[in-house]
Design a protein around this nucleic acid. Sequence first.
DNA 1: GAAAAATAGATTACACGACATATATGTCGT
DNA 2: ACGACATATATGTCGTGTAATCTATTTTTC
Lengths: 152, 152
Amino acid sequence: MRSAEELRYLILAAQREGNRLLGQALRPLGITPSQAEVLRILQDRRSLTLNGLGDLLICESGNSPSRLVDRLASAGLVDRQVSAHDRRHVEVTLTAEGLRLAGQIAAIEEGLYEFIDAASEGHDLEQITGFLRAFVADLPAGQALARRSTTE
Amino acid sequence: MRSAEELRYLILAAQREGNRLLGQALRPLGITPSQAEVLRILQDRRSLTLNGLGDLLICESGNSPSRLVDRLASAGLVDRQVSAHDRRHVEVTLTAEGLRLAGQIAAIEEGLYEFIDAASEGHDLEQITGFLRAFVADLPAGQALARRSTTE
DNA sequence: GAAAAATAGATTACACGACATATATGTCGT
DNA sequence: ACGACATATATGTCGTGTAATCTATTTTTC
């Protein structure tokens, strides 16, 4: 198997397993990895429009995360409010319960990051992130991540 | 953003964008990346049971790729045949049309691999695959990939 | 050789995720 | 003020992705 092919499948495997592990860890909170990503972003930026949120999400390609936010709203974790100035905009904010959960999520993510740190013993992480950053730099998800990194 | 967190999102971003690119390239063939993975595996191993196939798939966690194979069967790309000896087993094989498509898929994948090769200019791919291999080694998707690599 | 356990596969329920399309609202040129 | 266009969000459809449950068939155990 040529190395580009192996890399392709390794990235798929790593993403899938990582997501599965995170999903299991989040299960007691009753939320999914995608929902957790939204809550953690809102924890840092008090309020965002749906589009603004979509521009920061890696887990979903821009279109508009309205259904993702739908479920969070039904669960009472976020509030949606139509902007007074521009009624096309919907402002999304955390509820008190959402804020509480965001804190718990941060703790769970910390566990995942320690797992990653342990797995990267003896490897040059900078090589790896450097390659991946270059790979996605010109693509939507890469730009979303760049927006996340700069202000967060 | 700590580097483990960045890596996590980079892997998510790379997987998502890679899959999106491949999906667009495959669209003219009328199949999805997951379906392509099945066809390519069957191209190398003439016949497999559903479970045997699931053990080699990275794109789907072993449970059973029955839905995936359903669609391929409806599209006339694979045949399913209940084993005479053990009627629990369903043997899956490519049809002539499926074999033809598998060849076209290989050509499209080649394009993706050239893109990956280009992006990895100046980076140490061995560092990257080494890290990811260690990361998924003990997890189901990693073992599926190991099975793929050894015999393919 | 029959009941119990294990196994293979299918089915189902739920939540994404991608894409296309629809709808509502704003902006701009005239 | 009107129409063309752009923007923000919502919705419909399809195909995964995960886990739980169901059924059929073998294998094991007594």
